[in-house]
């Protein structure tokens, strides 16, 4: 079971071991908004992922992933992303981070696996870089 994708097409270039401070714009890929359209596109994907909140479902999924996904009616292209644990593409396809985290948990992974894939770096590099501190304040902050 891959917890860190090795062939993920959507992972940005890893770059150096040091991570820059995060930017303060709210555009992708820095911030992946869970928009209402994404919520609709990811409806069955999220229903599947949230089913993994029970131990018996986690076991059933891991025993036969294809069959389990088919039961939830997850579209073929999203089933493929699940099979590859392509965390970033799963979020872009409408998976909510908190739902996709259940898939990572069932796969023996954690939030850092998703984060490292989103950032495009090694999990260890991200763990060392966190917290990625910035210190700006909103202009009208009291």
């Amino acid at each position: 079971m891959p917890t860190t994708p090795t062939d993920a097409a959507t992972a940005p270039d890893p770059g150096g071991a040091q991570l820059d401070a995060p930017p303060t714009d709210l555009d992708e890929p820095g911030t992946i908004g869970f928009t209402p359209r994404r919520a609709l596109a990811g409806a069955s994907l999220n229903r599947f992922a949230l089913s993994l909140r029970s131990e018996s479902n986690r076991a059933a999924f891991l025993a036969d992933e294809e069959a389990y996904l088919a039961r939830y009616g997850v579209p073929a292209e999203q089933r493929d992303l699940v099979a590859r644990r392509d965390w970033t593409a799963l979020l872009l396809a409408g998976g909510h981070l908190q739902a996709i985290l259940k898939l990572a948990a069932a796969s023996g992974g954690t939030l850092l696996d998703i984060g490292a894939h989103n950032v495009g770096c090694d999990r260890g590099v991200l763990a060392t870089a966190c917290p990625r501190l910035i210190d700006g304040l909103p202009e009208r902050m009291p």
Partner: peptide, 18 residues
């Protein structure tokens, strides 16, 4: 905090303290 996207891991102690 931010736990997804390229800004994963962002924190701002100055904002929180203010």
């Amino acid at each position: 905090h931010q736990i997804s996207g390229g800004r994963f891991g962002l924190a701002n102690a100055r904002l929180d303290r203010r």
